[in-house]
């Protein structure tokens, strides 16, 4: 853990990344190292662009500045087919599961295998059943995605993400909106997949307890900057007021309870311009505080 910041053993290196959406800077010159075979968590409140970071790493979005290297290759300089070859080795678990709704669980897991290989159907069957067994859903192979609970859908998506035996998996908010039992199952699964398959895992999350329980290393993001990093122990002991607010789920602190606005009295007394709603692209996430409240 001592030489963690050296790029020697890291699978993913993010260097001086700057990414903007419209006027707003989502990332402002951040650098991260994701070590091979470890679980690295990226934490921060909703709306800090954690999902965006995964999409930048996956090459779906292009940064304004900086570079992202995965397995020694700069993701944003690759040609299209090189990028696709790389992506076959990167699994991603979306928050919604992102299962294809017009095919059943079995076909969903088989989908990437059928697309990318020419294996005979009998072999695909064994492969898919093995992956489904790993997530405990071998018996659910004939169900359609709309018949699955949120937790099951995420586990099927996980089986699909490991179908091609990737070298890494990116988890986008794996614990959000799960009941305690599915949450426990997912925590266990992520941990055991990481150790048994030797995967490198990146977890993006704002669920403090679950993430601290399984992560080897944690980065805390806010306002486009890395404001804290270290092992779970180091993060818990962090002297940063901000990190403490996030870890303890305090409603007010360095991150204000109120969305930026003008003086309250001014606002009440003067009706200035007619109210103009923000377009949905600009609208701040409304559940920003509601989610954090769970820990207070």
């Amino acid at each position: 853990m001592d030489n963690f910041d050296s790029t020697q053993n890291s699978l993913v290196s993010v260097h001086n990344l700057t990414f903007s959406r419209g006027e707003k800077k989502i990332f402002d010159d951040i650098s991260l190292e994701i070590e091979r075979g470890k679980i690295t968590a990226i934490m921060g409140p909703s709306g800090t662009g954690k999902t965006t970071l995964l999409k930048v790493i996956g090459g779906q979005l292009f940064p304004a500045k900086g570079s992202v290297t995965v397995n020694g290759r700069n993701v944003h300089h690759l040609k299209r087919d090189e990028l696709y070859t790389l992506r076959k080795r990167m699994g991603m678990l979306f928050q919604s599961g992102a299962l294809l709704t017009d095919m059943n669980v079995f076909d969903n897991v088989a989908y990437p295998v059928r697309e990318h290989t020419h294996l005979p159907e009998s072999m695909i069957r064994s492969l898919v059943l093995m992956k489904l067994e790993a997530v405990g859903l071998r018996g659910a192979r004939d169900l359609m995605p709309n018949e699955l609970s949120g937790g099951m859908a995420r586990r099927v998506a996980l089986a699909r993400a490991i179908a091609l035996d990737p070298m890494m998996i990116m988890y986008d908010e794996p614990f959000t909106g799960q009941d305690p039992i599915s949450m426990g199952a997912l925590v266990l699964l992520i941990k055991s997949l990481n150790t048994t398959l030797g995967l490198t895992s990146i977890i993006v999350s704002h669920d403090v307890h679950e993430t601290l329980a399984i992560a080897d290393y944690i980065y805390v993001l806010s306002e486009g900057k890395v404001i804290g990093k270290g092992s779970p122990e180091e993060i818990k002991q962090s002297s940063s007021e901000w990190v403490q607010q996030f870890m303890n789920g305090a409603a007010d602190g360095p991150v204000h309870f109120h969305y930026p606005a003008k003086e309250y009295m001014d606002d009440l007394l003067h009706s200035d311009k007619p109210f103009k709603p923000l377009s949905s692209r600009q609208r701040p996430p409304s559940d920003r505080h509601a989610k954090r409240k769970r820990y207070s």
Binding site: K55, G58, Q60, Y84, T85, R87, K88, M90, G91, M92, F94, Q95, S96, A98, L99, L100, T101, Y111, P112, E115, H116, A157, R160, L164
Partner: peptide
Amino acid sequence: LMKATEQLSGMEMMAIDPIKR
């Protein structure tokens, strides 16, 4: 809806081009 439920994005991450499929 496929876009809203991240199915298109998911296909891209599986290295499958959603435009083609």
